[in-house]
Amino acid sequence: MNMKNLFAIISLVLILASIVAIFYYAPIEQTMGIVQKIFYFHVASAWTGFLAFGVVFVCSILFLWKKKEVFDSLAFCSAEIGVLFTSLVLLTGPMWAKPIWNTYWTWDPRLTTTLILWLIYVGYLLLRNMIASPEKAARISAVYGIIGFVDVPIVYLSIRLWRTMHPGYVMIMGGESSGLDPRMFQVLMLSLAAFTFLFLTLLLIRVDIEKLTKSIDQIRKNF
């Protein structure tokens, strides 16, 4: 069994386990009620987006340093998947906000910096398509991918840097002050693991497609 299939099976099992745990194991939050259950995949999507943009950052540095095409492919594919998961954050957030804050959107620092993050990486994907020369596109997007990553810690720290309505930390820096029920925390960890494996699966598939596209283009040029 290859790595892609193994990761796909692991992510499928973990996603199914997460769904079961969310609805049958995690308790219903007393103040917010059942709508709080959006949180598990909302936070997992945010984590996966950060992870994907982290991969873009590291691979962009490696591409500029080693000049190997594989790092460019990894950065590009990871940016695409990062945009996908950040879109999920921006879509599921308002579904939670409407019943809790009585509004779908507010220009809160956490929400605004997340929207900026999404726009930065949509810009990254558009930029690549706009530059005709693949070598130039790879170099410019690598620089963009490094600079764009600056917004990731800003998004994470936004609830500490500014006054915000957004709920506090639940993972790093959260600790006991997060007030999260241990069962909720366990389920959150399970959904984080599920989306991490889903990200790895999608990345491997997407990189394979990118390699194949480049090979076909090369063959067509030489024909």
Binding site: M32, G33, I34, V35, K37, I38, F41, H42, S45, L84, S87, L88, L91, T92, M95, W96, K98, P99, L198, L202
Partner: peptide, 22 residues
């Protein structure tokens, strides 16, 4: 207050977007 509709919508969006991408 029945907020189940928002939960259902959120889950539909998550799986809809992911399946669409796959």
């Amino acid at each position: 207050m029945n907020n189940t509709i928002f939960l259902v919508l959120a889950y539909m969006l998550i799986w809809g977007v992911l399946f669409g991408y796959i």
